[in-house]
């Protein structure tokens, strides 16, 4: 089951660029939340702050408080511990090229030292089923390399890989931007299925996608969270003029 995320006064920098400014919001548990905004607005930085991935870049830093359930992300645990509880799906499918499909999906467990074969088998099957990939790959799980799948299949395998560690939160950074329309709709169906069990945060530049999958939507602009509300409200009756300009396509 997912947990809610409370963000207070989050600020982030890349070198001297102030990429996130005073972000405050509450992401409810077991719902999908979409983050929209023009490129470079800080939405990707924001999700990378949630699992402390932005720290992997030596020039990046962040201040503020993020609470995931009862856990203070920046105080109570190391980045490694946080990331074990938060799954992440990236913009482009990034399978491990030297591993089979099975090992790709099991990697989060195996690389963390999990050795129980029976549970590994079960988990790989469960995750691939959740990612709606099981039927397509079940016959050559250990024979085929993860990199030999098609782009859409690779992305669903990456989702399965993220789900295999049984996370509470699933972050998706433009998960369909590199995919064709058919694969995109499969990913969207998937998000729709998964959001009852996980807290999903999805970054997208595709507003229709946000409207289709998310209950809540946040609009980022120039490092600020302009507006955060129910998706219905954002798309039909935004409070802020800038949100309206963006969703009606009137943005510079």
């Amino acid at each position: 089951m997912g947990v809610g995320i409370q963000v207070e006064n989050l600020n982030a920098w890349y070198g001297n660029t102030h990429t996130l400014q005073d972000i405050n919001l509450h992401i409810p548990a077991n719902h999908a939340t979409a983050l929209i905004g023009p490129s470079g607005c800080g939405k990707s930085t924001f999700v990378r702050c949630l699992n402390r991935m932005h720290e992997t870049n030596p020039i990046a830093r962040a201040t503020g408080t993020i609470r995931m359930g009862d856990l203070d992300v920046y105080k109570d645990a190391s980045p490694v511990e946080i990331r074990r509880r938060v799954g992440m799906v990236f913009q482009r499918p990034n399978p491990f090229p030297t591993m089979s499909i099975y090992d790709n999906v099991a990697s989060g467990l195996k690389l963390n030292g999990f050795r129980n074969r029976r549970i590994l088998d079960e988990t790989v099957e469960r995750s691939l089923k959740q990612a709606a990939l099981w039927e397509e790959v079940k016959d050559d799980l250990k024979k085929k390399s993860g990199a030999s799948l098609s782009g859409g299949q690779q992305q669903r395998m990456c989702i399965a890989r993220a789900l295999a560690v049984d996370p509470e939160v699933l972050l998706m950074d433009e998960p369909a931007s590199a995919l064709d329309p058919v694969s995109t709709s499969k990913i969207e169906d998937l998000i729709f299925q998964l959001k009852s069990q996980y807290t999903i945060v999805i970054v997208t530049h595709n507003m229709q996608q946000a409207a289709r999958v998310a209950e809540n939507t946040g609009f980022f602009l120039n490092g600020k969270l302009v507006e955060f509300d129910s998706t219905h409200k954002i798309f039909t009756n935004p409070r802020d003029k800038r949100t309206e300009d963006y969703i009606t396509g009137r943005f510079g």
Partner: peptide
């Protein structure tokens, strides 16, 4: 080695040395 692959492992909570 593409950076995306390292990010994938780090994102799974794999420690850096193991990645």
């Amino acid at each position: 080695v593409p950076h995306a692959i390292r990010e994938a492992a780090l994102g799974l909570g794999v420690p850096k040395w193991r990645t």
